[in-house]
Design a protein around this nucleic acid. Structure first.
Lengths: 128, 128
DNA sequence: GGGGCTTTTTACAAAGTTTTTACAAGTTCG
DNA sequence: CGAACTTGTAAAAACTTTGTAAAAAGCCCC
């Protein structure tokens, strides 16, 4: 049985209490229902999930997924984030955090959450 | 592999509630009537069935069945899918799914539409 | 060399996806 | 507070992919 895309390696998975991704088949499940994501939606979620608990700068997302450099002005990232959140339903805000002025962060469900004291902003203030 | 006439090798048959394929004899039955498929129609169905429940990219189908590389622009795959679906009658859309932007997927009858990536233990895991 | 069948192309329609636009709402900081 | 800036949102426009019908081209076999 030659496999066209080897499905047998069980690696390349993300899984938490509600969400799971199979990076090989590009399959996403939310509470045991398939999430039907478009390609860009999937790319975006996958990239965020692969950096779970890390802040991913807008710049990095635009570069990795769209190939856009810093000079390009577009709102397409925001729109895609919005559609992703919609599809993540009630968990949306738990999973996808906006880091104002920087980017987004995917948090695994029930992951310990760092609540920044209101005075503390990240040390790396990004310039405009 | 078995002998040329070994009919018992389970690897050479597909069977579900409505559809069965004998890969050795290249025979297809739908609800106990023989389906008369042309060569290419059979090749296409067989390849999809052999990868049941997996997404098979257009690229892979064009490569395996037509020997076409990525540079060739053709609609013949779509046309064959259409004729296959027509011959699969009322089950067509249940059996052959279009995965937009990627390819097609054959789903066995009554199969759960998606298999959950099943890995338990850690609260969350990302495996490369 | 002409029917009968299969496969491929063509041309257009339909469906689906992505990006832009325009504005609202939220955040930061003087 | 208010200005400057960032993000959220809905809707439209632009674009891409897939579906479909019909015609053209390719085969086979007598």
């Amino acid at each position: 049985m030659g496999s066209l895309q080897d499905q047998s390696n069980p690696g390349s998975l993300y899984r938490d209490e509600h969400l799971s991704l199979d990076f090989r088949q590009q399959l996403t499940m939310l509470d045991s229902h398939a999430l039907s994501l478009t390609r860009k939606e999937y790319d975006l979620l996958a990239l965020l999930v692969q950096h779970a608990a890390e802040i991913v700068p807008r710049e990095a997302l635009l570069m990795q997924i769209w190939g856009y450099g810093a000079e390009i002005r577009t709102r397409t990232l925001d729109v895609h984030i919005r559609r992703l959140r919609k599809k993540l339903g009630v968990y949306a805000d738990q999973y996808i955090e906006t880091i104002f002025g920087i980017g987004y962060r995917f948090q695994p469900f029930h992951a310990p959450r760092f609540q920044a004291p209101s005075v503390d902003r990240p040390a790396f203030a990004v310039t405009a």
